[in-house]
């Protein structure tokens, strides 16, 4: 068969080969594997997991504050004073460290705080009685599920389709409104809503600007463990095993399973059209 023309991978020419013919030399020549694969080290995996741990610890801290308030182990005024003090401290730090136009931002933020306080005080009786008729078990289950939704859709800084900041925030606010109805007075409900705003709106903003603050995670972790230990052993065990699962077991598995990665690329891939206006999107 030396007289035959060499086979070419084109459709516009009539060639003396059957339709399903593929040349052995050309077959899968364009196949590529793991093009932009970069091995993640264990430290990077743990740092990534610590972002999840941070948000998880924030949620646990919020629920702890609710738990201590509902059992009257701590006076609500003390909660309000302490969280407000911490918030003002962090706000001042954020203002001096990350803001350019301090005066304008201060004025703007003070207005926002005033709006929040006025409307919060006005509507706290409504929020307090909104889910009053629902049984406590249902309230706790709903709060648990909403916090789960909050953790799943939270923006951890990885671009993915599932990330949705608004859904995450609404879920957290819904959970806190549910929990607020179990407290004994409208004022306590207002305090819990304030804490929710601080924990789920302002705190992520601060952490975003501080770039992976590991010590915050550590402080949260220790204080959560301490206050859980005062409640009981079961909660502490569950919390600590979750922490170990998130920060030790999952990163180890992730790093280990990387060797099974086998992405194939080739001319059969779908073409990707870049947006003219945002080429780096």
């Amino acid at each position: 068969m030396a007289s035959r023309k060499p086979w070419r991978k084109v459709l516009y020419e009539r060639q003396p080969y059957p339709d399903n013919y593929t040349d052995k030399k050309v077959f899968l020549r364009d196949l590529k594997k793991n093009i932009d694969f970069r091995e993640v080290t264990y430290l990077e995996a743990v740092l990534g997991a610590s972002l999840l741990l941070q948000e998880f610890c924030t949620v646990v801290a919020f629920v702890l504050i609710y738990f201590y308030m509902v059992n009257k182990w701590v006076p609500p005024t003390a909660v309000f004073q302490w969280t407000s003090f911490l918030t003002v401290l962090c706000f001042a730090y954020h203002l001096l460290r990350f803001s350019r136009d301090v005066r304008e931002k201060l004025g703007h933020d003070l207005r926002t705080v005033l709006t929040f306080v006025v409307f919060g005080e006005l509507f706290s009786p409504v929020l307090h009685t909104l889910t009053d008729t629902i049984s406590t078990d249902t309230i706790h289950t709903t709060a648990f599920l909403m916090m789960l939704v909050h953790l799943v859709f939270f923006d951890y800084g990885v671009s993915a389709a599932i990330v949705s900041g608004s859904l995450s925030l609404s879920a957290a606010v819904f959970a806190s409104i549910c929990l607020a109805s179990r407290l004994s007075s409208a004022r306590e409900a207002f305090i819990l809503m304030t804490v929710a705003t601080e924990a789920f709106v302002l705190f992520p903003l601060l952490r975003n600007d501080m770039q992976k603050p590991v010590f915050i995670t550590f402080v949260l972790l220790v204080s959560d463990t301490y206050f859980l230990y005062l409640i009981g052993n079961l909660a502490t065990t569950l919390f600590l095993s979750t922490v170990v699962l998130v920060t030790v077991i999952c990163p180890v598995l992730f790093v280990r399973y990387q060797k099974y990665k086998d992405n194939i690329y080739g001319p059969w891939d779908e073409a990707v059209v870049d947006d003219v206006d945002n080429p780096f999107d």
Binding site: S159, A160, I162, F254, K261, Y265, D269, E270, D274
Partner: peptide
Amino acid sequence: MPQHTPAPSPSRAVYSFVMYLSFEIF
């Protein structure tokens, strides 16, 4: 939407791994 492509990407790898693990645990 950041995604225009069905091809694998690092963020997809992370999220699918999390999904895989959480369903296993569940």
